[in-house]
Simulated assay, not measured.
Amino acid sequence: MTDNTTRLDHVVLWVSDPAASAEFYEKTLGMAPIRLSEFTAGEAPFPSVRVNEETILDLMPMAMAERMKMLPGAARSAGHPVNHVCLSLPEADFHGLRTHLEEHDVPVSDYSYDSFGARGKARRSFYFRDPDGNIFEARHYD
Rank of each mutant, 00 (worst) to 15 (best):
G117C: 05
H10L: 09
A122G: 03
T55D: 08
V106Q: 00
P47T: 06
F136T: 08
D110L: 14
Y141I: 02
A63H: 07
P61N: 03
K27Q: 15
F39S: 07
P131E: 06
S109M: 05
G120Y: 01
P47A: 01
P45C: 01
R76Y: 00
W14I: 10
V82E: 03
V11S: 07
A20P: 00
H140D: 05
P72M: 06
D130E: 02
P131K: 10
H10Q: 09
A41Y: 11
L101F: 09
A32I: 08
S109W: 07
M60H: 08
G96V: 06
L57V: 09
T2S: 13
T6L: 13
M60W: 07
E43V: 08
E26F: 04
E23Y: 07
F126I: 08
A122C: 04
A122L: 00
L71T: 14
D3E: 05
E66F: 03
H104F: 01
E38D: 15
R67V: 09
A65K: 05
T55M: 04
R139G: 06
E23G: 09
D132W: 02
I34D: 03
S109T: 07
L13C: 01
A122D: 04
I135N: 11
S115Y: 09
A63S: 15
R129Y: 07
M64E: 05
P33Q: 12
V82Q: 07
Y127G: 05
Y127L: 13
T55L: 03
T99E: 15
K27G: 06
P72C: 00
Y127W: 11
L57R: 07
A65Y: 02
S37G: 04
D17L: 02
S37K: 14
D17V: 03
F116C: 10
L97N: 02
V11L: 13
S109Y: 04
N4A: 12
L36S: 06
A74F: 15
K121Y: 11
S77L: 14
E43L: 15
S125G: 10
R129E: 15
L97K: 02
W14N: 15
Y111G: 01
P33M: 14
M62A: 14
R123A: 12
L59R: 00
S112I: 00
D114I: 04
H140K: 04
D9V: 11
V108T: 13
D17R: 04
V108R: 00
R50K: 12
Y141F: 12
I56M: 04
P107G: 07
L8C: 03
R50N: 00
R7W: 04
S37A: 15
L71I: 13
F128R: 02
P90T: 09
D3P: 07
G120A: 01
G96Y: 11
Y113P: 03
N83M: 11
R50M: 12
R124G: 04
I34A: 03
W14V: 06
R139E: 09
S16I: 11
R98E: 05
E26A: 15
S77I: 08
A22H: 06
S109G: 07
